[in-house]
Simulated assay, not measured.
Amino acid sequence: MPRPPTQRLTIRDIAQRAGVSESAVSLALNDRPGVSPATRERIRRLADQLGWRPSVAARALAGEGSATVGLVFARSISPLGVSSFFLQLMVGIQEALSHRGFGLLFQVVDGPDAECAAYRRMWAEHRVDGVLVVDPRLDDPRFEVLAELGLPAVVIGALTRSTNETEAESESDGGRLRVSQVWADDARAMAEIVDHLHELGHRRIVHIAGPAELAHTQRRVQSLRHEAERLGLVDARSIITDYSEDEGVAATVSVLAERVRPTAIVYDSDVQAVAALGAAAERRLSVPDDLSVVAWDDSVLCRSTRPRLAALVRDTVGFGRRAAEELLDLLDGGPAVTTEFDRPHLVPRGSIGPAPA
Rank of each mutant, 00 (worst) to 15 (best):
residue 179 V to L: 14
residue 180 S to T: 11
residue 69 V to L: 08
residue 103 G to Y: 03
residue 128 V to P: 02
residue 68 T to G: 01
residue 63 G to R: 05
residue 175 G to K: 02
residue 162 S to P: 01
residue 68 T to M: 12
residue 127 R to L: 11
residue 101 G to H: 06
residue 92 G to D: 09
residue 146 L to S: 08
residue 162 S to Q: 15
residue 146 L to D: 01
residue 79 P to M: 04
residue 66 S to N: 03
residue 139 D to T: 15
residue 97 L to E: 02
residue 91 V to M: 11
residue 185 D to K: 01
residue 176 R to K: 15
residue 193 I to S: 00
residue 113 D to T: 14
residue 152 P to E: 13
residue 130 G to F: 06
residue 155 V to F: 07
residue 125 E to Q: 15
residue 188 R to A: 10
residue 134 V to Y: 02
residue 92 G to K: 07
residue 190 M to W: 02
residue 95 E to I: 09
residue 153 A to S: 13
residue 189 A to F: 09
residue 122 M to Y: 06
residue 64 E to H: 07
residue 106 F to P: 02
residue 68 T to D: 01
residue 177 L to D: 01
residue 104 L to E: 07
residue 74 A to V: 06
residue 170 S to H: 11
residue 120 R to K: 11
residue 121 R to Y: 07
residue 114 A to M: 12
residue 150 G to T: 12
residue 180 S to Y: 07
residue 174 G to C: 08
residue 94 Q to L: 09
residue 90 M to H: 11
residue 108 V to S: 08
residue 197 L to N: 04
residue 191 A to T: 08
residue 134 V to I: 15
residue 70 G to K: 02
residue 168 A to L: 14
residue 153 A to K: 09
residue 110 D to K: 13
residue 60 A to S: 15
residue 192 E to Y: 03
residue 110 D to M: 10
residue 141 P to E: 12
residue 76 S to D: 13
residue 163 T to Q: 09
residue 171 E to M: 11
residue 94 Q to F: 01
residue 145 V to F: 06
residue 188 R to S: 13
residue 159 L to Q: 06
residue 192 E to H: 08
residue 129 D to R: 02
residue 196 H to D: 01
residue 183 W to D: 00
residue 116 C to W: 00
residue 89 L to M: 14
residue 173 D to E: 13
residue 144 E to Q: 15
residue 117 A to Q: 12
residue 146 L to T: 07
residue 97 L to G: 05
residue 149 L to A: 13
residue 198 H to S: 00
residue 69 V to Q: 10
residue 141 P to C: 15
residue 196 H to S: 03
residue 197 L to V: 05
residue 127 R to V: 00
residue 62 A to G: 01
residue 72 V to L: 07
residue 185 D to F: 05
residue 138 L to T: 10
residue 113 D to Y: 11
residue 119 Y to V: 07
residue 135 D to P: 04
residue 166 T to L: 13
residue 139 D to S: 14
residue 64 E to D: 04
residue 88 Q to E: 14
residue 154 V to Y: 05
residue 194 V to R: 00
residue 116 C to G: 10
residue 161 R to K: 14
residue 104 L to P: 04
residue 70 G to Q: 06
residue 142 R to L: 11
residue 87 L to D: 05
residue 191 A to E: 05
residue 125 E to S: 12
residue 198 H to V: 04
residue 162 S to Y: 07
residue 71 L to I: 10
residue 65 G to L: 00
residue 78 S to V: 11
residue 147 A to Q: 04
residue 180 S to M: 12
residue 139 D to M: 09
residue 179 V to K: 06
residue 136 P to K: 03
residue 182 V to W: 04
residue 178 R to P: 04
residue 138 L to M: 08
residue 195 D to G: 00
residue 161 R to G: 10
residue 84 S to M: 00
residue 150 G to W: 10
residue 73 F to E: 02
residue 67 A to F: 05
residue 116 C to V: 15
residue 144 E to A: 15
residue 133 V to T: 07
residue 72 V to N: 00
residue 90 M to S: 13
residue 130 G to N: 12
residue 74 A to G: 12
residue 152 P to T: 15
residue 76 S to K: 11
residue 116 C to D: 09
residue 101 G to L: 07
residue 111 G to Q: 13
residue 149 L to C: 12
residue 118 A to P: 00
residue 137 R to M: 15
residue 186 D to K: 01
residue 138 L to E: 10
residue 135 D to M: 09
residue 155 V to Y: 01
residue 79 P to R: 05
residue 151 L to A: 10
residue 71 L to F: 04
